[in-house]
Amino acid sequence: MVTGTSSVAAPASSTPATSRSENDVFAGHVGTEDAADVTDLRRRIDTEAVPRLCRALDLAHLPVELLIRLDDARSARLS
């Protein structure tokens, strides 16, 4: 398992960000094949998925706690 924490800022928008609690955190659990490029996976989550989530929720930024579970190819397909 690979874990990490980061805070990703969403691109500026024309609408103001809603207020949120300082305790708000996105906790993501990702299962992938053990041959996956974890660095690239984390980069794509930080640069693509989280900014989209921030825009959808109208947040300026969102701290992220990510758990990446590396499974063998068969168990990843069955999940």
Rank of each mutant, 00 (worst) to 15 (best):
S19T: 07
A27S: 02
V30C: 09
E33M: 07
H29D: 02
S21Q: 07
S79H: 13
D58A: 12
L41I: 12
R20C: 10
A76S: 02
R52A: 15
A73I: 06
L53Y: 07
L57R: 09
E65Q: 09
A10Y: 05
V38S: 10
L59P: 13
P16C: 10
S7P: 14
T39D: 11
G4T: 15
E22R: 10
S21H: 12
T39M: 07
A49G: 09
L41F: 06
L62S: 09
V50H: 00
V25G: 07
A73G: 01
A76W: 09
P63A: 07
E48H: 05
F26P: 00
S75D: 01
V38E: 12
L70R: 06
V2N: 10
L41C: 10
T5G: 05
L67G: 04
P63T: 11
D46Y: 08
L41H: 09
F26G: 02
T15F: 10
S7D: 15
R55V: 09
L41W: 05
V30D: 03
S21C: 10
D46M: 09
S13G: 04
D24K: 10
S21N: 08
V8D: 00
L62Y: 11
L78I: 08
V50S: 01
D71S: 08
V8C: 01
P63R: 02
L67T: 06
D58G: 11
G4S: 15
T32H: 09
L67V: 01
A76K: 03
S79Y: 06
D46W: 13
A12H: 04
A9Y: 14
D40L: 05
A76F: 12
L57E: 09
F26W: 08
L53P: 04
S13N: 02
D24M: 06
A76G: 01
D72A: 14
A9C: 13
N23G: 09
A9D: 15
D40S: 13
D40P: 12
S79K: 07
D40C: 04
D46R: 14
C54H: 14
V64H: 05
L66M: 13
A17M: 05
H61N: 09
S19V: 07
S19I: 01
S19W: 00
S13H: 06
H61Q: 14
R42Q: 09
L78N: 11
T39H: 07
L67A: 07
A27D: 12
D40Q: 10
H61S: 13
T39A: 11
E48N: 03
R20A: 11
V38D: 08
L67P: 02
V2H: 10
D37L: 02
L53R: 00
R69E: 08
A60S: 15
A49C: 12
R43D: 15
H61F: 03
D34F: 04
T18E: 08
V2P: 10
V2Q: 10
L57I: 01
A56L: 07
S7R: 15
D58I: 03
T18R: 14
A60Q: 11
L53C: 03
V64D: 02
